[in-house]
Design a protein around this nucleic acid. Sequence first.
DNA 1: CCAAAAGTGTTTCATTTACACCCATGT
DNA 2: ACATGGGTGTAAATGAAACACTTTTGG
Lengths: 240, 240
Amino acid sequence: MGASLELAVSTVILALLPGTTAGCGDETLQLHLPLVRRTREPFAGRWALPGGWVTPDERLSSAARRTLAETTGLRPSYLEQLYTFGAPHRSPTGRVVSVVYTALVRAPEAAAVEIGENVRWAPADRLMETVGELAFDHAEIVDYALWRLRTKVGYAAIAQHFLGETFTLAELRGVHEAVLGKHLDPANFRRSVAASGAVEATDEVRSGAAHRPARLYRAVLPPGGATGGYPPWQSRPELG
Amino acid sequence: MGASLELAVSTVILALLPGTTAGCGDETLQLHLPLVRRTREPFAGRWALPGGWVTPDERLSSAARRTLAETTGLRPSYLEQLYTFGAPHRSPTGRVVSVVYTALVRAPEAAAVEIGENVRWAPADRLMETVGELAFDHAEIVDYALWRLRTKVGYAAIAQHFLGETFTLAELRGVHEAVLGKHLDPANFRRSVAASGAVEATDEVRSGAAHRPARLYRAVLPPGGATGGYPPWQSRPELG
DNA sequence: CCAAAAGTGTTTCATTTACACCCATGT
DNA sequence: ACATGGGTGTAAATGAAACACTTTTGG
């Protein structure tokens, strides 16, 4: 039977926070993730993904939520299993298999995280420059999570989890632009989102800016029973 | 620390074998998977996915390959991690977390599997009718694997792993048709495959049939360094 | 010569892209 | 009034689907 083997969960939590982009010095939204500083060996002093051990009675996703709350206080608006990493020598202390989740959190909740000596936000694309080498194989894990997010926003309605209950299409477009790192045509973006059926208009608008008020939209849940299969634009959120 | 918790691997192995389709009684290629009959409790007598326990020194993918060989003798041409299932009461005997892999095998190797009292091939779409209820949550796992394969053949070059070193485009089209369960236009299929760059022509042809010989093609490996990221048509095969 | 599948060309339709233009609001 | 982004319209470009047609083999 499988002995001398530990099962952990880790989470790549992503939030869009203001930050300086690589190219120019202007302030735009940028993907950030919270890291925790390790206080014990192995890799004491280095920064790592939040995580912890799986207890016998909880679901894997529950373990991810729990360890997330314990280490950072965050409660994600979206949580999805990413991949399970289990190379024999990931940890120098013994065999550790990590089920890794990707979580998305909204900016206000992200801002509420108390930054301290051992918890901080780091820009996802410049981890090396800002916090140095990550512990374990966590740098590889972050790379993979970013790749998955960027490919997935193209076909799945997940960007809205970075935003609140209602949002303007310009805000949603801003999320896509920040994630993909490129400009999107407002007119075409509006059409493609409308065609996808991922959002529905409310009867409210957001005014206050020095221009015409923008209509507010709300995310619409996956219809589910399309052709009997799982909808192509939203893979199953919680399985097994 | 994570105690009283077992880590297993299971594999959904898929092969294209001749079989009667649901609608009419004609013989076409159909997705099949090998099942093993459980000889002990829990679920003694029921059919299940091949799998086993992870040993401390091997990679997860190696554990999948090893248990696969031990239970069925198969050596897959393609192996990819599918998902990790870990609901608390999946197994009545205690907490078991299963890292599930999807494997593709070629028809000749599939035919070499010795069918016996405790190993058999079953058509993937009619498991209930042919072998009854599967053990554990394996029916759900198979459903998810089939969904993933069917969505993935649309954008990734994986169908070729059902075929040999060289193959005709008609054979490759036959694989796609069997997986997707629908007819594809030969002319358009040829163009889309050529445009994807997933295959390259050899200077040989397959003759012997009562018609013009077909050119043989070979699968071409992912180029890798496209834009620095992982290629969109082939996610990373072995990670962590 | 004929059947049957390989392979090419063309026409049509839908989708994406680019960009011009009007609308409504705060200053 | 006018600058600014919200929102609509439209034409060109690109790509997918449908199908006619030519080529080359075995019988």
